[in-house]
């Protein structure tokens, strides 16, 4: 009872301190590591320890030459061979270790449950480190090559087989509007030839959607110009993963703060809760943040600094996915 109270008080103190002061930044050079003993077991051990196999008898002897008990009576050596086959086997050993996932510990590694618990996130904590990018030098944006390429649906490895047939046009699909839309970044070998027109269209219409507050003194036009400039710069750094599950639903909002010289002060994911509950969202959000970081510094008119000091960026892949 008393211990409980003491513990509870201590715990509260820690939680409150963490909330008030911010999460501790660990000084140790290397963050802690999760130790996973992958006890991969030899076949013998495995069988000894295994009982979960539905098969009644492990039959240690039989396996020696029993690979094909009755379909094939030959003395097939392969399957039974104790060493190789079993080696890659899972470890039914009762130890809790098999996959690395279990204890994430230091980092918010495997999707951290929405615990209020403070974690030493290496992520961009706004306060602790005022500048993630200590060097404001106008380092050329890290990806020079990217700039060269067209923004949109650029397929990467060359489709080797695409030319196989010309009959495709004839094939009328009754209903497949989604397929057509998707083909800009998701390939459909049957439709390849039709692509160009559509592609171009997707690439050209960036669709303006930024809302500005009317009360701002700066003219709407100036704001739109700035928005366009930012959009153009970030789009060159935003790498999409079109095969991701429900990629079209992963809209990420990030609030960024910039210095006068266009370097990044902070980039905060607006929907933090989802960061912790949803691994897909987290990687989409981190990916968007990487784009923001990779693109810094931004080239924007200094005279309008107050307009772009803080920007709400909404990364919305739906248009690219045609949904």
């Amino acid at each position: 009872m008393r211990n409980g109270t003491i513990f509870s008080i201590l715990f509260h103190a820690v939680v409150i301190a963490a909330l008030a002061v911010g999460l501790p930044t660990f000084v140790s050079p290397l963050p802690p590591i999760t130790n996973v003993p992958v006890e991969l077991v030899t076949l013998a051990e495995l069988e000894a320890a295994t009982e979960k196999q539905p098969d009644p008898e492990p039959e240690p002897v039989a396996k020696e030459e029993a690979p094909e008990p009755e379909p094939e009576k030959e003395e097939t050596p392969p399957p039974p061979d104790p060493k190789p086959a079993p080696a890659p086997e899972p470890e039914p050993t009762p130890e809790p270790e098999p996959e690395p996932e279990p204890e994430p510990e230091p980092e918010p590694e495997p999707e951290p449950e929405p615990e209020p618990e403070p974690e030493p996130t290496p992520e961009p904590e706004p306060e602790p480190e005022p500048e993630p990018e200590p060097e404001p030098e106008p380092e050329p944006t890290p990806e020079p090559e990217e700039e060269a390429k067209p923004i949109a649906p650029k397929p990467r490895p060359k489709p080797k087989i695409k030319l196989a047939e010309q009959e495709t046009p004839k094939e009328e699909k009754p209903e497949e509007p989604p397929a057509d839309a998707l083909t800009s970044i998701l390939r459909n070998v049957e439709k390849l030839k039709k692509q160009p027109a559509q592609k171009a269209q997707t690439a050209t219409a960036p669709k303006v959607a930024e809302q500005t507050r009317p009360k701002q003194q700066v003219s709407r036009i100036a704001q739109e110009g700035i928005a366009r400039a930012i959009r153009q710069q970030i789009q060159r750094c935003w790498r999409l993963d079109p095969g991701a599950q429900q990629a079209e639903d992963l809209v990420v909002e990030i609030r960024i703060t910039l210095r006068r010289d266009g370097t990044l002060v902070s980039a905060e994911v607006v929907n933090l809760t989802r960061m912790f509950g949803d691994a897909y969202f987290r990687s989409a959000a981190e990916n968007a943040r990487r784009a923001i970081q990779a693109c810094s510094p931004y080239k924007l008119p200094v005279s309008e600094y107050e307009v772009w000091r803080v920007i709400n960026l909404k990364f919305d892949p739906r248009e690219m996915f045609g949904t």
């Binding site: 970044i185 669709k207 500005t212 930012i230 999409l240 784009a291 920007i311 909404k314 990364f315």
Partner: peptide, 15 residues
């Protein structure tokens, strides 16, 4: 202050 909202709707697909 009022914030500038910008939608990013285009990216690129590359490893």
């Amino acid at each position: 202050r009022a914030q500038l909202n910008v939608d990013i709707t285009q990216g690129f697909v590359e490893p």
